[in-house]
């Protein structure tokens, strides 16, 4: 009987927690389908009296929302591909090759785990400015490629692969690149997926850096586009909640889908950063 009671209590907790987590999202989605008049109506309603798409329409017609989405797509996908390639190559070297200065180089990379972009964003801006890359999409792509977590995850993974595999391949005359490309890469599919989903989401969500480097409206990614729309109305009277909620719902959809599809890898990726640390 007591055990039964405990179970019910646990389920009750679970439902309660999930309600808290879903509440803001559900409320935003519901309201994004209401007319502006109904949105500010008191008392608020959970089911729209009049289901309307006008907020979505307004956003798409008055703001370069499609352009922002395409920018976010281009940037996040290119960055993810480059991260996968560059980080896995570097990680292979750290895990498998002996070379001069390996310890120092690897430590300098790991030390950077501690510093978020906020800590070095000013000099970064100066470098990018000097290279003439300011206000370009390429500056949005390359900065996430200098990411440290992916090297950390992949190096740790490659270290766990049995050395015998590699030695056998060497005897068969396989080059280092051959080993990396034909043996280690295929074996690390799960880790690569983790890195891919983590990179995609963090690039998609990045805000401070794009906001600093971009001036031109049409290069903005979604995060900055939506925020600047809201920011331009902050503390002013002309603000309409409807379109901002519609924009929010559309902007979070891609990462949400990506997360739900690769959920296992995403969770594994987070755990991997934790366990060995």
């Amino acid at each position: 009987m007591r055990k039964y009671f405990r179970k019910i209590l646990l389920y009750f907790c679970m439902v309660f927690i999930l309600l808290i987590f879903m509440f803001p999202l559900a409320w935003a989605v519901v309201c994004s389908f209401k007319s502006e008049l109904e949105i500010i109506k008191w008392p608020p309603t959970w089911i729209p009296e009049q289901f309307t798409l006008e907020n979505y329409q307004y956003m798409l017609e008055h703001y370069p929302f499609v352009r922002w989405s395409i920018n976010s797509m281009i940037v996040s996908i290119s960055a993810t591909v480059l991260i996968l390639l560059f980080s896995s190559m570097a990680s292979y070297a750290f895990a498998r090759l002996n070379f001069v200065g390996k310890k120092i180089i690897y430590s300098s990379i790991i030390a950077m785990l501690l510093l978020p972009i906020q800590a070095y964003v000013i000099p970064l801006f100066l470098v990018v400015n000097k290279l003439g890359m300011r206000d370009t999409l390429s500056s949005l792509v390359l900065i996430p490629v200098a990411n440290v977590t992916s090297v950390y995850i992949l190096t740790n993974f490659y270290k766990t692969l049995p050395r015998e595999l590699e030695e056998a391949a060497r005897i068969d005359g396989c080059s280092y690149f051959g080993i990396y490309w034909r043996i280690d890469l295929p074996l690390s599919k799960a880790s690569l997926s983790s890195v891919a989903i983590l990179s995609f989401i963090s690039t998609w969500n990045s805000f401070l850096w794009p906001m600093i480097t971009l001036r031109t409206d049409k290069w903005k990614p979604l995060s900055v586009g939506v925020a600047s729309y809201v920011g331009s109305f902050l503390n002013s009277n002309g603000f309409q909640y409807g379109p901002s909620l519609a924009a929010a719902c559309m902007a979070i959809l891609p990462t949400l889908i990506a997360y739900l599809l690769l959920q296992k890898n995403f969770v594994q990726g987070i755990s991997n950063t934790g366990i060995k640390g």
Binding site: I17, L18, A28, Y241, S244, T255, Q263, V267
Partner: peptide
């Protein structure tokens, strides 16, 4: 339940702000 709990983390933080603003 676990999957849902993680969702807020994958949303664009700036957009999370918009939702909570409301």
């Amino acid at each position: 339940a676990r999957a849902i709990t993680i969702i807020p983390y994958v949303l664009i933080p700036a957009v999370t702000g918009v939702i909570w603003n409301w």
